[in-house]
């Protein structure tokens, strides 16, 4: 089990990671997400010992690193997978995978497991992106690390390749039974792969929970917006019945941080439905065709821009009037209303 407490990292006078705490169990995969420059990669570098830490403690049990007691990367038994693969260009696939190993059995195991048998004696320069990342993963796992750190492992790959490889990596990690922290800026990747998700903003962990909880009960508006499309709508929360009433109908509510009275509710595009109707309660602002569905942005008469995802059979054009209605039965996250952002908050 990897335990991290009160971790801070500074570059010169700039604090890049603030007071971070997390722990990782057995074969758990923790997805770390956040916008560019939020400190995701720095967290990984700190855990690997590639940057000194300013405060806190990192310990997987076999060693313990603090600001006073730096443990060099080579003594940490950590595995790292990089966005740009970082394969040694002058070594073959086999030599890369067995870089520091005396026993070839692990090399054979992972070469077969990841389907690299035909590439054993090839130099990395001739491989495709997907093959390179498989080799990099095999190299990391063959060295049997105590935990694995993945730094945006899929961001240099084609979209078509990403989908297969993300499941392949997840499967390999689970097969090896090694815990991992996986950094990504792709919220879909985070939601689908992770056992838990941590959302970072400006070096601070905003929420750390299962994908379901982070998505449906975000700790704040930032998390709500980061994980998928989010619209906010003004309403009143009745604490007795735990229901919110809005211009678009009633729904069960779930108060975040003790919000009550005048509130904003979080609406995901799937929480609503629309049908063409004049006068209705809003007008279509724009439409995005997504194949199996259409995403509509509706300017409601109350002032908010609300996004709705509908079956592709429903066709309404921009400028036409529609009737919006909340249809979900699960509780919606309810936030205290932010001064100056209600009604005009169109994000």
């Amino acid at each position: 089990m990897l335990k991290v407490s009160h971790l801070s990292v500074k570059y010169g006078r700039t604090t890049v990671v603030h007071d971070l705490a997390l722990s990782l169990h057995d074969d758990e995969i923790l997805m770390l997400v956040g916008p560019t420059g939020c400190g995701k990669t720095t967290v990984l570098h700190a855990l690997a010992g590639l940057v000194p830490i300013a405060s806190g403690e990192i310990s997987p049990g076999t060693w313990r690193a603090t600001p006073e007691q730096h443990v060099p990367p080579e003594k940490r038994n950590v595995g790292m997978v990089f966005q740009d693969f970082a394969l040694f260009p002058h070594l073959t696939v086999e030599q890369n995978i067995g870089f520091r190993l005396t026993d070839a059995s692990q090399v054979d195991h992972w070469v077969n497991m990841l389907g690299l048998a035909s590439l054993r004696h090839v130099k990395p320069g001739t491989l495709s992106g997907g093959q390179k990342q498989r080799v990099a993963l095999a190299r990391t796992l063959a060295h049997q690390p105590a935990f694995v750190l993945l730094d945006e492992p899929l961001s240099n790959l084609d979209a078509a390749l990403k989908d297969d490889l993300r499941w392949e990596i997840r499967g390999a990690l689970k097969a090896a039974g090694i815990p991992a922290i996986w950094v990504t800026h792709d919220q879909e990747e985070a939601l689908s792969i992770g056992d838990r998700i941590g959302i970072l903003r400006a070096g601070k962990l905003e929420q750390l929970d299962t994908p379901e909880v982070c998505y449906s009960q975000p700790a704040n508006r930032f998390v709500a917006r980061f994980l998928g499309e989010a619209s906010f709508l003004d309403g009143q929360l009745d604490r007795e019945t735990s229901r919110v009433s809005t211009a678009l109908g009633d729904a069960p509510g779930f108060a975040v941080n003790g919000a009550s009275g005048e509130v904003s509710i979080l609406l995901r595009p799937d929480d609503l439905s629309l049908r063409a109707s004049d006068p209705g309660n809003g007008v279509i602002s724009w439409v995005r065709y997504e194949g199996s569905a259409r995403l509509y942005a509706v300017q409601s008469d109350a002032g908010e821009l609300i996004k709705v995802r509908c079956n592709h059979e429903i066709q309404v054009r921009p400028g036409e009037r529609v009737d919006l209605c909340i249809t979900t039965t699960h509780p919606l996250a309810v936030f205290a209303r932010e001064p100056g952002t209600s009604a005009t908050d169109t994000n």
Binding site: L50, P72, A86, F88, R139, H143
Partner: peptide, 22 residues
């Protein structure tokens, strides 16, 4: 690319050795 050094070090090679060999 620094990640090659990072890779060598996290695979258990000391700093001096990775500078020399990588």
């Amino acid at each position: 690319d620094a990640n090659l050094v990072h890779a060598a070090r996290t695979l258990g090679m000391s700093l001096v050795a990775s500078l020399w060999r990588v």
